[in-house]
Design a protein around this nucleic acid. Sequence first.
DNA 1: GAATTGAATCGAAGCGCTTCGAACGTGGTT
DNA 2: AACCACGTTCGAAGCGCTTCGATTCAATTC
Lengths: 333, 333
Amino acid sequence: MITIKEVAHHAGVSMSTVSYVLSGKRSISEETKRRVEQSIVTLGYHPNAGARALASNRSRVVGLVVPLHSDQNMPIIMRFVSSIVARARDHDYDVLLLTKEAGPGEAHRVIARSMADAIIVMDVESADPRVPELRDVDAPVVLLGMPDDHEGLSCVDLDFATAGRQMAGHLADRGHRSIALIGSPPSVYERGTSYAARLLAGFQGETAKRGLPASVHSCAAGFDAVSECLDDVLHPDRGTTGLVVHNEAILGTLLLELRRRSLDVPGDLSVITLCPGDVAETLPVPLTSIAVPAQELGAIAVEMVMARLGRELAPEVRLLQPLLTDRGSTASR
Amino acid sequence: MITIKEVAHHAGVSMSTVSYVLSGKRSISEETKRRVEQSIVTLGYHPNAGARALASNRSRVVGLVVPLHSDQNMPIIMRFVSSIVARARDHDYDVLLLTKEAGPGEAHRVIARSMADAIIVMDVESADPRVPELRDVDAPVVLLGMPDDHEGLSCVDLDFATAGRQMAGHLADRGHRSIALIGSPPSVYERGTSYAARLLAGFQGETAKRGLPASVHSCAAGFDAVSECLDDVLHPDRGTTGLVVHNEAILGTLLLELRRRSLDVPGDLSVITLCPGDVAETLPVPLTSIAVPAQELGAIAVEMVMARLGRELAPEVRLLQPLLTDRGSTASR
DNA sequence: GAATTGAATCGAAGCGCTTCGAACGTGGTT
DNA sequence: AACCACGTTCGAAGCGCTTCGATTCAATTC
C-alpha cells in the first residue's frame, strides 16, 4: 500500500504538504502542486479512508435508510436511491446502505461509530416510530417524507396536498361535476403513509370548496380488486366522469379493464394520475399526470445534508411544488 | 465521544484488555470481562470505525455494485440487495452502495482506499466489460451471475441451463409435443445477459434431445407486444400446447390476454415460468414455476465473501439447482 | 536598512484503535 | 526450593492521515 509518506518522499516534500495539495486547505505553489500530483499518479496513491476519517473526524459517507421489503413501488424507490448516490458522489461522498427493516438503531449505530457523517431516511410515514429516535441521532438527518411531528429534523417531499388540489381542480375546470379518487390499498392508509393522507386532504379540500360530489376509493393491486373498485366508482348513481388515481401499481390493470368495458379515455372517462413521468407515458393510454420528482427530491436531500455538514444550519422543510403534464387523458364536458 | 481509553479507566483495566474483551482474541477472566462490559454499557461506548479500520486493516464493510438504472425487474434486485445486507449484518459487516452506472472504477477506488474489504457485483452479463477490471481488484470479488470468462473470480448463480431443461422436460413428460419459449425482449439477448442465453440453451438442448418441435420468441413488455407475440406463438400451424415463459415483466399481461382470448390455463394451454415464487402465486392464474432463489443466492454470495476474507481460498463457482413448484398450470394431454 | 508582512513549507502531535511482546502471578513439577 | 507453564493483564508501538503552530525566505514598508 502506497502511503502519503511515500508520496511525500517521492515528490521531495513533507507529508503535510501532500495533504494540503490534496485538500486545498492551504496555499501551495504551482510548482510543488504539480510535482506532488505527478508523484500521486506515478505511485498510484490512494488515501486510506480509515486514517482520513480518524484524523479529520469526517467519514465522507452518508447513511441511507432504504425500505427494502416495502410493498410499495420498488422502481420509484430505486430512482430515489440512484439519484441520492449520484449526487452524493458529486460531493465525493459514499453511501452506506441501511435497511428500514433492520430498525432505527442502525442510524444511531452508524453515527456513533463514525461510519457516516449524516443520515438520509426514505419512506417516512406520518407517525413514523423512527422519528423520535432519529431526533436523538447526533448528526444531520434528512427525511424523505413528512412525519406529523418533524421538529428538529429536515424534510423534503412533494407537496401532495397541492397535488391533490391541482388534480381535482384540473377536472373541475374541465366541467366534470362528479369526480372520484382511487387511492392506495387500505393498508397504506392504515399505516399512516403521510403522502396518501395529504393528497386525499388536498383532493377533498378542493372538491368541497367547489361544492362537487366526490367519492373516495381504496384499491388493492390485482385484477379482481381493480374490477370491483371500478364497479363501485362507475355505479350509475354517482355519475362519475373524472377519475384521479393515486396508486401506481394498478394503473395498467385499470386502463385495461376500462378498455375491456369499452370505456374510452378520455371520451367516456377522464383520468389523471400521480406517478413517475415515464410510467404515465408508457401506459396503454398515456395519462395526464403529476410526476413524482424522485430525481429532484433525492438531489435536494443530498444538498440539505451537505449544507448542514458545512455550516451549522437549522433543519428545514422543503415541499416541492407539483408539476402537471397534460397528455390528453382528460376531456372537457 | 467515549473512547476505549475512558472505558479502560472506568473499568480499571488497560486499553488492550478492553480491546481483547471486545474481540475475544485473547482469554480474559470472567470477572474482568463482566466489569468491562458493564463499563461499556454505562458509558455508552461505541468503537470508532475509522480507528478500528486503520489499526486492524479491516473495514468490516463490503461494497455492493447494484444496477440502479436497470431495465430489469427492480423487485428482484431488491430481494438480492435485501438478503445481502441482512446476511452481511449477521457477520457484523456493513454494505457500501456502489452503482453499476458509476463504472467499474468504483470497486477499485473503494478497495484501494480501504473503504471495503470485498466486493459483490450484481447483474453480471456474459461478456461483461467490468469483469477484466474486477479481476484486478485487490480483494475478494464475488459475482452474482456468470460471465463467460470467470477465471479468478467467484460466481454464484442459478443453474439456468438446468432450469431450461427442466421446464421443457416437465411439459414433454406431460405429453406436450409442441412447445414454445417466450423469453425476454431482444435487447436482453443482445446485451448478452448470460442467464437468458443459458436458459435458452438448456431449453433447446432438451427439446432437441427429445425430438420435439420448439419455437422461441422474444417479447417486449407492453400490451401490444404481448398480444402480437401470442399471435405468433399460437399460430395454428405450430400446434403449440405448452408454454415456457422466461420474462417476469409480461406474466400478468400474458395471462390476461389469454383470458381475453378465452383460452384456459391449463385446459387449452399449459404454462410454466421462471420467476420469484410469490409472483407466480399471485398471478391471475397461479403458475407452476421455478423460483429465482434471490434470498439464497444473496446469502451464498455473502458466505463466499466471508470465507474468502477469513482463509485464503481459491475463487469458486456455485450454480444453485433449480427447484420446480407445481401449481397446476400444466396439464397432461 | 531594520522591521513587517505573507506565502510556502515543515515537524510533530495527535485521532482511537489493535496487537505484539513482556510481565506478573499461581500452581504444579522435579 | 528452584523451575516451568499457563492464564491474565499491561505497555507501547504503530496504523496513515490531518492540522496546528513554527519556520523560512522574499517582497514590501517606513
